[in-house]
Design a protein around this nucleic acid. Structure first.
Lengths: 221, 221
DNA sequence: AAACGTAATTTTGTATACAAGAATGTTGAC
DNA sequence: GTCAACATTCTTGTATACAAAATTACGTTT
């Protein structure tokens, strides 16, 4: 389905931005990138349009496309909104989820734990995404599920900053369990709370983020 | 700033879609539209990319761009998410708003009332947008404010469906007052509740929406 | 040396050209 | 009459070409 240059280019550039290969604030040089990828400027510019819509780059008319990475403050704000959307999903899901849905959620949580214990962080992020997507879908509000998934995807690269710190992993496991038991017991408010707490950057999580952020900043300079 | 064909084209097409000039599900014919606007396909296709990102059209690779208007169910889902974001704004704004901010909010509510009493609905939508944007900004979370504004804008054409029904206007005025008093008295929960209630499609609002939706459907066919 | 104005050079935005894939129409077999 | 295979026509996706705006370089003036 996704077989257009514009789409693959978008993914590649996105990757280059979040890995720091292209620095924050830098201009995306159309001719240079076109040469680098061996394509013309046309599909590149189409990719720029959607990158701009996603907020990762800013398109200034007749000036160019500039990388716009969120600051720490913006990052915390984004996770705060994510937390609220997740809480909403949790509240609705608790009311509407089926027995099969709960079983699937349990399995996803188990898979998360296994990945963590095996130290396979890439696998963890995949399983964690499954867990959260199950909750989004279980909300029964497909628009909410889409929006939550969109923001989750946008935050993915920054989420890694938090969990990299040792010790956070056990904490994350426990938080999944809290969500699960709340959903299972039909306690909407507690499910919402547990999810908000799992996602928002508060307390120790703030310190973890700061430590990670400053490290990446030092790398970039 | 917005001086590119691609941007004006996006706006024009958006307008054509929400006014029904281009029907739901229709394919956006690149060559026909290019001829109609007297431009080439290049800026048109760039406009398609951002329309696709906003959800108003679906881009199917090598098939074309298709209009995707939300169904009634999706519309209710969208307003439910909007309600939650507004509630979040209200909760944070209540905690963080300044005296000046409250004064501005009061003025905006007054301007809304005046527009309604004068029967100037266009003016009402403008003033209503001011009122809500003030709340978004007062939340102190700029990312939240942006996201709320984005969704508000996306829902604007469908919002008109609800208020067109006679009698809803007085209701809307009262709801603004409820929000205002809650914010003023520092009652976070009540502010959040009042906003959720103001935005979500519940009770009589559902009937109003249905009546309006069916009317537009009849027009389209 | 700083500031201004102008020419040269990039770079963006748009138009046009072309190639590959999808849709459509036609013919022939059963 | 229906279905299938092929040819034709349209449509999309990408490359190239060109014009206008912005940036840079440079020389002149003070």
């Amino acid at each position: 389905m996704e077989r257009r240059l514009a789409d693959t280019l978008r993914e590649s550039i996105e990757q280059m931005i979040v890995t720091g290969e292209i620095a924050d604030g830098a201009r995306l040089d159309e001719v240079r990138l076109a040469a680098k990828f061996g394509v013309s400027r046309t599909p590149l510019r189409e990719a720029f349009q959607v990158l701009s819509a996603s907020g990762l780059v800013e398109l200034i008319p007749r000036r160019g496309a500039f990388v716009r990475l969120p600051s720490v403050v913006q990052m915390i704000e984004m996770f705060e909104v994510m937390a609220e959307l997740e809480a909403m999903c949790g509240r609705l899901a608790t009311r509407r989820i089926s027995a099969d849905g709960i079983a699937a959620l349990k399995k996803a949580a188990d898979d998360c734990d296994r990945a963590l214990m095996e130290g396979d962080t890439d696998q963890y992020y995949r399983e964690n995404e499954v867990f959260h997507h199950l909750l989004y879908d279980a909300s029964g509000n497909s628009f909410l599920a889409e929006e939550a998934a969109r923001l989750h995807r946008r935050l993915q690269p920054f989420r890694r900053m938090q969990l990299r710190v040792r010790g956070r992993m056990g904490q994350s496991m426990k938080e999944h369990r809290d969500v699960l038991t709340a959903v299972e017991s039909g306690d909407e408010a507690r499910a919402a709370d547990a999810l908000h707490n799992h996602v928002a950057i508060q307390g120790e999580k703030f310190n973890d983020l700061m430590a990670s952020y400053e490290r990446t900043q030092r790398q970039a300079s």
